[in-house]
């Protein structure tokens, strides 16, 4: 590994660094003008070897709001990867053009390979089903802004907990904070993998697994929704029996706390009824906005421009 600071996994950041990033994001939100030219003359390369409109636009928007410029590609077809160039070579080349790189790749570990050769900071914008640290940063910032602090709450994580990388990352990140109870809501087939269960046990936190959202709704302070895909079920009968348990609607929210925070990494399909969108407890569109601010904070920090409270 070389000395260039990269963020490949959420655990690359200490709790102190996470808190500093969130403080900076809060400061940007409070006074965006102060940061509007911080990255003037700097360039962000968005290297998207697989398409992801949402994440790419979030990064590009973040850099633009910092007064910087953006270059890059949005599919592997439009990059030299289509000609067979290695990730390492692409990164070394792009390092000659840009000051910082946000990279998404369909293969797991590609950003780690890139980080070994890079001359500029790299942010992993998702590598297959592996890591997606800026989504977790987004989730943490949203929790902190909605609840005031990260800790002293019960979080329900609902949906596909077996394959959902956002859920695993969020659990790993939250385990470093105090006094959080975990309620894992999923069909039996889609429970968290053993290695996540091991982490929960090792951390000695309070956690439980349930099948139905309705059964635990009154306990929850945060509900983190993810999508349950039909093709994940072993049989149609189970899918039909359980699918409604994983669709959040106003009826299910009747027993929920009045200050519940509903999060979702998006995109959603039908797991949250659109009737919930106007409820003040729905945080998922504010979460999208937080994603841009935390990416601004991360870009500033990795470029060494992250000192909070400085004037332009």
């Amino acid at each position: 590994m070389n000395d260039v600071r990269c963020v490949i996994n959420i655990t690359d950041l200490s709790v102190e660094e996470l808190d500093k990033l969130m403080d900076l994001a809060d400061d940007i939100i409070a006074d965006p003008v102060k940061y509007s030219e911080k990255c003037k003359g700097k360039k962000l390369a968005t290297l998207f070897f697989e398409p992801s409109t949402r994440t790419r636009l979030s990064f590009e928007s973040a850099m633009m709001e910092l007064g910087g410029n953006v270059l890059g590609f949005s599919t592997a077809d439009s990059s030299s990867a289509a000609k067979g160039e290695s990730v390492s070579d692409t990164i070394r080349t792009v390092g000659c053009y840009a000051d910082i790189i946000a990279m998404r790749h369909p293969k797991e570990g590609a950003p780690t390979v890139a980080s070994l050769k890079t001359t500029v900071p790299i942010i992993n914008a998702g590598d297959g089903g592996h890591y997606h640290p800026t989504q977790t940063l987004t989730d943490l910032l949203t929790i902190r802004r909605e609840r005031g602090a990260i800790g002293d709450f019960t979080i329900g994580l609902c949906g596909d907990l077996q394959f959902g990388r956002t859920v695993h990352s969020l659990i790993y990140a939250l385990l470093r904070y105090e006094n959080i109870k975990y309620v894992l809501i999923s069909p039996d087939e889609l429970r968290v993998p053993d290695y996540v269960r091991d982490e929960l046990n090792e951390a000695g936190v309070e956690w439980k697994e349930v099948e139905r959202m309705e059964d635990v709704m009154p306990e929850l302070d945060i509900l983190y929704m993810t999508r349950v895909q039909r093709e994940r079920f072993f049989n149609e009968e189970d899918y039909i029996r359980l699918k409604d348990s994983y669709i959040l609607d106003m009826d299910k929210l009747k027993t929920a706390k009045s200050d519940l925070s509903i999060l979702h990494p998006l995109p959603r399909v039908n797991e949250i009824s659109v009737t919930v969108d106007d409820d003040p407890r729905a945080c998922y569109f504010r979460q999208v906005l937080n994603g841009k601010y935390i990416r601004m904070a991360l870009i500033l920090t990795l470029l060494g421009l992250g000192q909070k409270g400085e004037d332009r």
């Binding site: 290695s86 990730v87 790749h105 797991e108 570990g109 590609a110 590598d127 297959g128 089903g129």
Partner: peptide, 13 residues
């Protein structure tokens, strides 16, 4: 042996 790993497509790693 993970087919989704970057090492499965880039032989030089």
């Amino acid at each position: 042996k993970n087919p989704r790993c970057i090492t499965s497509v880039e032989q030089e790693i």
